[in-house]
Computed example of a mutant assay.
Amino acid sequence: MGTLVGHVAPGFAFLILGLWHLFNHIKLHIKNPNSYISPTWFPTSKFKYLELYLIMLATTASISMELFIGPARHQPFDTDGTIPSYHLHNFEHALISMAFFAYAASSIILDKIENQAKLALTQFLASMAFFQQLLLFHLHSADHMGPEGQYHLLLQVLVFVSLSTTLLGIPMQKSFLVSFVRSLSIFFQGLWLMVMGYMLWTPSLIAKGCFMNSEEGHKVVRCSDEESLHRAVSLVNILFSWLVIVVAVFGVSLYLVLTKYYGANKVRYFSLGIEDEEREDVEKLSDDVESQKRNLVGKPKSFIHVGQKTLSSVDIER
């Protein structure tokens, strides 16, 4: 990270992963609303572990970029074998990628083992990766001050949501809402990383009163005075708040579109036994109604007739 590409590339990976999960969770819930169980990853029809292998490939590329391709001497160590201070963040970013690599690799192994706890264990490994991400972003060695610090602080909020919903998914495997929020938070992580990359490393998009400064081989955004700093931070908050609304509306809209598409193809099935019983009940109800009608029509005549007979008897006696 630390560059435009370093934020946009992993951000795009998170965005695609979140969108893939969001689509599949909605589709699975629409087709199986009563038997829905939230999976941690989704197999594809032609290649079952494609998602997990792509995660392993992406994290391997990230680790290579951070430790071997990105550094000037193509290795992160100093001449005496120690880690220089300006490469500490490279190791931190690499450890985040390693955690997601471990999750993907372990998920493949767990899937090949017949065990009832494998789904919960996979969820646990995913939560471990998000915890690693949250921890290292929170305790970051880089000087995240000013606008950059605010971007990373709000990113931690999104990572915390992903971590919380992944942990909740262990005891609440049948909750669609937990899976929906988790997928949307992963999507939002990717979007926010991409926005961060463009807003912090595109000179024309830097807030007024702030500038790009080169420090320890990295370019960071600094502001000329306190007023410019507060303005820049407030603009970051406004941008994030605006994206919260956009992402929420996008998620619900996608749900409605997929519900209309996949819900229209659902066929309603009835049990023949239940249907026959219902038909018999309807027929009985119809017979009762007809019987009541006949009684209502016949009773007044009978009453009058009886009344007439009674009156006739009295008159005779008189």
Rank of each mutant, 00 (worst) to 15 (best):
R73Q: 14
I37T: 09
A13H: 02
M1H: 10
C210W: 07
L205P: 00
Y103A: 12
H144I: 03
R279Y: 12
M199C: 03
M128W: 02
I238G: 00
G70M: 10
S183P: 07
S302F: 05
I245N: 07
K260Q: 12
D281F: 04
L285S: 14
F250V: 10
I109C: 05
L119Q: 02
L4G: 00
S313Q: 10
K309A: 15
M145L: 12
S313I: 12
S141L: 03
E114P: 01
V252D: 08
L184Y: 05
L54V: 11
K208H: 08
G149P: 04
D111Y: 12
L4A: 01
V289P: 01
G197T: 02
E114M: 06
R222S: 07
L121M: 13
L67I: 13
T166M: 10
E275D: 11
L239H: 02
M65T: 05
D281L: 13
D111W: 12
F188V: 08
T310K: 07
L67S: 10
L184P: 02
Y103N: 11
T82E: 02
E227M: 11
Q189M: 15
G2S: 13
Q116G: 12
L154P: 00
V246W: 01
A104T: 05
V267G: 00
G11E: 05
S45W: 00
K301W: 12
Q156P: 05
S38Y: 04
